[in-house]
Design a protein around this nucleic acid. Structure first.
Lengths: 353, 353
DNA sequence: CTGAAAGCGCTTACAG
DNA sequence: CTGAAAGCGCTTACAG
């Protein structure tokens, strides 16, 4: 198909070594030779063969990305952030998604040997030790949303607990004392941390009573939870959903039941997906920058790959931001910055270690 | 890092050729030898080196996916569909997104040589000839949403025109005769085809008057369009947005202006993103299966790669489905199938060539 | 400044 | 049934 280095060498009347030097811009080459090679390469539309190059250099310029079964905008944004960061370093992204058990991940990881220089893994398994069994050693790994401690891996996550804590506290400060939480999927680390934040805030306030409802991050599960809440005898005065999709499903259930938001019940979500400000009423939520998470994860991995970083695992927690719109019925909190669309956002302190 | 075939060979007391035969399950090997090799490979956690294998077999088991700058659920769903289909064939997906000019794409394509067996390309450029200049020859390509004719490539798309035509006709049948369209980005082929469908339907009805408003597929652009429509002197009685995100933005603008939907104005979208049924009021739209598009695109490419398909380019158009909810104010159309959430869906005839 | 040669880790005819 | 050897397309010391 494509021309090889040998053909370019012949066309330019030089050795393959010289072509290689010109193409890679390293090693001394006389200007006249360089031009001859350049033009031959261009004429033949030469592009170095990636696999051949990888074999000898032991670098693939590719990172593997393993993700659990993810829907919606989270996935896009994450890939987007990583892809942009990777391209800037002339790296490629090999994606494999929809994993829900260890065996599957292991199979993919084996197949990736010799194809990637490093790995970004968002594991559906909470256990770090399980992961260590599976991930090949000697290859740099950045873990997304995994456990922060007790891992030999560098990790990166949002401050889920902090964001949930702040939002719950905000609801409490508005006078709510019966606050329900719509939980995410049981095994999901984000879901756990958000639940934890809600619990911690609720524990702070004497007399506050919480209700926990199961969910799975889909709009439907939020809708179902909303229906249950509506029918319950002592209805909570506020609902904190562990993500926006569920909050929006819940809003739909309340609307259908004729329940006013925020007049009859306050609702808040988590993520600040683009659509959050356009639903009825505009949704109060916790903003995270998913693309940023992706870009930083790649950046960390790249640092490791280029030896700019030590070998010790690092753990970083990205800050979140409270976004107060209409669904929680709040007046603009003091000190909040004014933004478009009548929303106020509050930057939360980063919780980094 | 990882064990090589040579190490496994030594450990098992055989030649590398034999290890290769065992690992690949081809060629005759005595059962006892096979077991010895298997156990040695397992003990050493041997995994074949992808690049080395690619170099000799001239297959990478990887397909490259080039996409324009895409946000939201479209991107996720597409990748998801491709990834699932690819995994079933033990293929990998190399993704590169956010391209908006030819030069960028060309650079990525060159870098992909020797890394992928085939390409799935969704080009921001409408012109097929421009693409031909860039795409390396001799490598199978499936074009997503590109022009159907005049290309040497196999193409795959939704029946955008047909879906838009059916929805517009539906609005007309409800008695609307002033129907606005919120257009997508100028260069986008989906956007063009949807506009065409609207135009064709409007042309059929004597006395129908259309208004065209610019948009870019984002909620914000739909919001802005909604505001303009509200302020306009002769307000249309129905709005057809070229995608759901814009329709939802438009709904938000109408709500803010105190305009009732569908009482004062009907609204319809395109895509049927998961959230469409949960907005207020639930959105009438045209359903497409994005994951299906992705899976089929991979399938076609795979057929080409495994020689199961001829060399002649094939063009396929995937059918869409009308989903009637509340935002367009229709009564259930006759013959529609009943689904959950009080919606009716109508399968539209496939328009395949 | 340039070239001949070794070698990266595999697979695959070809002998035996 | 098994092994020795060639070769996939590159890069990189090593000579010259």
């Amino acid at each position: 198909m494509s021309a090889t280095i040998r053909e370019v060498a012949r066309a330019a009347g030089v050795s393959v070594a010289t072509v290689s030097r010109v193409v890679n811009g390293k090693g001394p080459v006389r200007e006249a030779t360089r031009r001859r090679v350049k033009s031959a390469a261009e004429r033949l539309r030469y592009a170095p063969h990636g696999a051949a190059r990888s074999l000898i250099t032991n670098r693939t310029s590719t990172v593997g990305v393993l993700l659990p079964d993810i829907y919606g905008e989270f996935f896009s944004e994450l890939i987007r952030g990583m892809d942009l960061a990777a391209r800037a370093q002339e790296y490629h992204i090999l994606v494999s998604g929809s994993h829900d058990d260890a065996e599957e991940i292991e199979a993919v990881l084996r197949a990736l040997r010799g194809r990637v220089d490093g790995l970004i893994v968002m594991s559906p398994m909470a256990s770090a030790s399980a992961l260590r069994e599976i991930v090949p050693e000697g290859i740099p790994v950045v873990l997304l949303n995994g456990p922060a401690r007790g891992t030999p891996y560098t990790t990166m996550r949002f401050d889920n607990r902090g964001g949930a804590f702040a939002m719950t506290r905000h609801l409490l400060s508005l006078g709510h004392d019966r606050i329900a939480i719509l939980e995410g999927p049981p095994g999901n680390q984000d879901a756990r941390d958000r639940l934890k934040g809600w619990q911690d805030a609720m524990a702070e306030k004497a007399g506050a009573r919480g209700v926990r409802l199961p969910g799975d991050f889909t709009e439907s599960s939020g809708f179902a939870a909303g229906q249950r809440l509506y029918a319950s005898s002592r209805r909570p005065t506020a609902v904190f959903a562990a993500n926006d999709a569920m909050a929006i499903g819940c809003l739909a259930a309340f609307r259908e039941a004729g329940l006013g938001v925020p007049a009859d019940v306050a609702v808040a979500g988590f993520d600040d997906i683009p659509i959050a400000r356009f639903v009825t009423p505009p949704l109060s939520t916790v903003r995270v920058s998913i693309a940023d998470l992706g870009a930083r994860a790649f950046g960390r991995l790249f640092d490791r790959l280029s030896g700019q970083d030590g070998d010790a695992p690092r753990h970083q927690t990205l800050p979140t931001r409270l976004v107060i719109r209409e669904s929680c019925g709040a007046r603009p909190p003091p000190g909040a910055r004014r933004r478009n669309f009548r929303e106020k956002t509050i930057r939360l302190k980063e919780e980094s270690r």
